[in-house]
Amino acid sequence: MTTANQTAIAKYKNSFLKEVEANVEEGHWVRMCMQCGVCAGSCPLGNAWAHPPQELFMMIRAGKREEVLASDSMWMCTSCYNCIVRCPRKLPITHIMHGLANYAHRLGIAPKGQPTRETATLFWNNLIKKGRVNELTFSLALYFKDGFVQGIKNALNMQAVGLGLVKARRLNPMEILGGHGVKDQAGFKAMIEKARQIEDRKKGFAK
């Protein structure tokens, strides 16, 4: 358990809903759900969810903090927006799902090894190095995330695609040497840092 998580528990005591409203992107919408279930039924990946959005909202209201934040459900969202379009209360469900995932991640209690979370982490780490995503190193990082042997297998599987991209000049093998970044690296870093400060302040992670 991280300090951030302990702080949050202490601060909101028994009201997980208030915690969500304060810290989760679009979290204040959770109270507006009327439990019709249309989001749950509209999700194309619904079968893969332990808890559909409508149920997550009810769990939040019922104060099931651990179950919600440790759930992998919201990580399943593919942003198809079916739920948002159909929600009779106009809840921005997709955004709330991402908000919940992000919050759980920040608290360090999101499910370990959850593929969406791992991919997103790799993507982010790759991105903030130079302000651009290095597709080659990102792809390789993904291939090798489950170990060296699996990584070789993955790479061999994708060999034809990779060569095709190189041929079509869509992938530069030289990028493996670090690749190029955005022009003002220092400015980019400062911007990211500032954004993080603002978010931390808003979501209660400020030191």
Binding site: C36, G37, V38, A40, G41, S42, G46, P52, Q54, R86, P88
Partner: peptide, 20 residues
């Protein structure tokens, strides 16, 4: 449940209700 969507079964001519 608020039904999410209706599909169609060509064989039976029946609407199929999807939801939770």
């Amino acid at each position: 449940s608020k039904v999410a969507r209706i599909a169609f079964n060509e064989q039976t001519g029946n609407p199929v209700l999807h939801g939770v």
